[in-house]
Write a protein that binds this DNA or RNA. Structure first.
Lengths: 215, 215
DNA sequence: TCCTAATTTAAACATACGTTTAAATTAAAC
DNA sequence: GTTTAATTTAAACGTATGTTTAAATTAGGA
């Protein structure tokens, strides 16, 4: 019972930063443990394997974010019975920004991790998220569906995945994009600005009324 | 001068399929050469390195697609002087579908490769594309910009990257999405259907008139 | 204080990877 | 048919990875 395992937290902190920056498979346990200033073997001791470490890193954010997002959504639904799609998406802003209180640069890190998680690790992280946080996702989709009743379910399925792609890709490369925007247009963008830019974009796409028929 | 190097083509064919399916870093040269039924060392003999093989795989598509896309765009601009954003994006459809004549499942493969390329390989593929095909990209962006003159340049920059994210992510996981859509809604989707679904979505997002001010 | 279980540590393990080497083989040039 | 250069081949190299081992260390409960 040594040290109450501050080691575990040091590993998680170093891992999440490196995973977000470089991706999961491009980040070795040796790099993580050296940045965390702990022994290499402690990852396997505390987490079992690299795969389980990845899940632990994501879970630390999802366990905070998912309930907060669901709560914000429910609050909005109670106060406003005819919430627009823009409103629905906007309920996510505060829960996302609150992650910055949790950890330094928490919002950016979380969104980058989410992006990496969906892109890399064929399926196994997607499975992890949907099985552990499925109820929250279902509830959100239902709220979206209700706010755009004229969009068929199949169409909505596709558009929400388009939206996921937009967000996930943007966030995974938000560093690079912000740098380019700063150099090209002299515009300094923090994560909140980017979030507030992306919401009208995806809301317009999802509620678009020109529906392409399946052929 | 043995064999007129059919080996080179066998490697490219096997590599592009595996790269598209599993990503670049998850695909080993040993897997590629075994599927291609050639010797392991032949990759380094013909291409120099894995990195150059990746570029060769992408170049084989880009060299066909980029000029075709530019030509289709110019044709549209000549016949219609007030092309809508939807029109502009739609000029890409035929050049994309023509890749299926080039190779079996060429369209899907190309889009998946493009997605993987932007996501993986931090920057070095992005650099490769912009330096080798920059004129085509610039021309396309100019056409988009002209069709939505009321959108400020900075805003357009962001929205086009959102669009890139949408397309790239959707295509990188289009297999999985089509499977889910088939299971959930009984809808069989080929790549053309997905492309025709995504265009109204991104066109709506890009031309959306609610512009968020920078703060 | 002593004991015990949790933790840390250094080392080694097993495997996979991209790449290089040098010999064997092949096909075209003469 | 012989020569020559391009190509193929099997093997090895060097390095990096995640994981395991067993001994050393630590800290809390008796």
């Amino acid at each position: 019972m040594a040290n109450r395992s501050e080691t575990k937290i040091k590993i998680l902190d170093a891992a999440e930063r490196l995973f977000a920056e470089r991706g999961f498979s491009e980040t070795s346990l040796r790099l993580i443990t050296s940045k965390a200033e702990v022994n290499l073997a402690s990852v396997n001791y505390h987490f079992g394997s690299k795969k389980e470490l990845i899940r632990a890193v994501l879970a630390r954010y999802l366990d905070v974010f998912m309930p907060a997002a669901t709560q914000a959504l429910q609050l909005k639904q109670q106060t406003e019975q005819q919430a627009s799609l823009h409103d629905i998406f906007s309920t996510l802003i505060q829960p996302l920004l609150d992650l910055n209180d949790l950890r330094y640069r928490g919002t950016t890190t979380f969104l980058q991790l989410l992006g990496r998680g969906y892109i890399e690790s064929q399926g196994h992280l997607r499975w992890f998220i949907t099985t552990h946080y499925g109820e929250h996702l279902t509830e959100f989709v239902a709220a979206v569906s209700q706010s755009v009743p004229n969009i068929p379910k199949v169409e909505l399925f596709w558009r929400l995945h388009f939206t996921l792609g937009t967000v996930v890709f943007t966030m995974a490369s938000s560093e690079a994009l912000s740098d380019i925007a700063a150099a090209e247009f002299g515009e300094q963008n923090d994560i909140e600005t980017v979030i507030r830019k992306v919401i009208p974009y995806v809301a317009a796409g999802v509620s678009e009324s020109n529906i392409t028929a399946s052929r």
